[in-house]
Amino acid sequence: MITHPFTYQAPATIEEAVQQLGKGDDAKVIAGGHSLLPLMKLGLAQPETLIDLRHIASLHQIRTEADGTIVIGALATHRDIAHDKTVRAKLAALADAAGEVGDLQVRARGTIGGSLAHADSAADEPAPTLAYDATIRAMGPAGRRDIAARDYFKGTFETALAANEIIAEIRFPAPAGRTGGAYAKFAHPASGFAVTGVAAVVTIKSDGTVERAAIGVAGVAAAAYRATEAERALTGTKADAKAIVEAAAKAANGITALSDLAASAEYRKHLVTVYAKRAIERAIQRARA
């Protein structure tokens, strides 16, 4: 039950939505509503106005541009993303992560744009968004603004998105030749949120050497992060079992881990090394396939 009254608008264009958001009263944007509506039921969010993006057709699309960039509309649901043929083939870590969000019903309505805008520290999709070096394209009163994923996640529920901006799409550059990706997750047994979620994206050369490794980690710190020490350790190796273990062991280096009832900070940092290993192994397998 939602007790706090609000007005509801469902504009036809993102420009209109931005205009309505900028009107000054306490307005919130709603996409799939799977973060916002529970907060409104608890009274933790009490917007005066809800701006529903659902009639903005372009935001629902997943498309590939001429240069190979894969563009995922903010309103693409986790289910759309998990089942999309292009995403599965080119952005396997993202498809994996989307398929692991919440449960079947949550994936049916929850959106990637909503997940990134809400920025729960235990959300799944920030990890592959970081690992694929995606760009978050936001629309605001001054027009569009591109934010690199690396500059986007600031903290728990904190992002680089301004209060008057709306995420329009998430742009994933086409991965180079022999690239494989995978997401490995230790889910909270009750909530399904990531206690640890690791997205690994690995590009190998024809001789099997790792050319590029990118590892995004969710659920562990206040904001999703790139495990740069682990990436450096893996790059240039032949990705044999020893190199993978040594790289994975560095996936939580320098990180202040969260501590809660599900996992202490120490245990979380251990989980990261285990799940980094699994994600890297799977990504390498896929790159070699």
Partner: peptide
Amino acid sequence: GRATKACTMLAVQ
């Protein structure tokens, strides 16, 4: 056609 938790969707939606 999609299984949806009807407690997490507004009727206006």
